[in-house]
Amino acid sequence: MILWKDRRQLVLEAIAGGLLILLPFYAGEYTVTTFVRIIYFGFLALSVGMLIGQAGMISLTQTAFFGLAGYVIGLLGAERDMPFPWRDLVAIGAVLVMALTFGLIAMRTHKIVFLMITLAFGQICWAFAQQNTSLLHGWAGIRGIRPPTIGGINFNQTSNFYWASLLIFALGIFVLWLLAKSPFGLALNGIRENPRRMAALGYPVYWIRVVAFLIAAVYAGVGGILATYNTGIITPTTIHLSRTIWVLLMVILGGATYFWGPVVGTAIAVWLDVLISQGTVRYNTVIGVIFVMIVLFLPEGVLSIADSLGEGGSLSPLRRLLDRKIADKR
């Protein structure tokens, strides 16, 4: 992935960035709110997408980290008045602790068993949130969560909140990009392709996967914090299986193997949801059919269209798909 290939590229990216930054000035408030949603779901999608794309792990626990961060913010911020940024740091800390616990167990497995185990973890978290009424208020969840006011800037205001989210998002993407290029990222790719060989080469495969899981969990957690501030409420439905599935679909929609895949997928999926649910009550059917089509006819996501139209070359996704399929055969 090359971020700045030439000048034209740079200009295009600058314009895109400018358009995003200036969004609140030319778009309606609803468009801005929708972009905020794209950003926090984008974090969640990056979390899921990074594990799939970089490490070949399909984790269905990520929504639980998203929700955990939200619950901590609600419990400490809304109910116990702990100030920013302490509650937020505690939230990330809690996410790390839970991710480590789950990671140590889950990383002993691979592939479909890993998927099932992470699914089960996610469901445990959901069941607990749903049934614990004394602390988490069960189904009702925690209400009245507000973003902080820092240095006189009130982040309860939509455009301020949008800019803050956008900044954090840009930072998150940048870090992820650095990570992907780092030796750690390359090792992760190696493990995705062939864990045995990497182990034979002396890489601590188990621990590399655990660390990747922790990093991904933090991304989900950051998304969860932003989401909770934005809606002002955290409930068990946030971590329900249907949400987890929704995120997975977003990632695939964009293309899990592309760096920008999860983000693009989220942007499209969130807008699809908004537009289709306005048009028909049967929007779940429409979305379901769209996803069936994608899986069958566009398994590498929408970005693969752009790719097949563009340069292609040795990194063409089709080739990579074939390569991986071959590598997958045991």
């Binding site: 090359i2 990216e13 895109a16 030319y26 468009t31 790719d307 139209l309």
Partner: peptide, 19 residues
């Protein structure tokens, strides 16, 4: 790849804003 993708994003953006 980047280029076409960005173009597509612009189109998408334009459609969304107009809509």
């Amino acid at each position: 790849m980047e280029k076409t993708m960005l173009k597509k994003l612009f189109v998408l953006l334009a459609v969304l804003i107009a809509g």
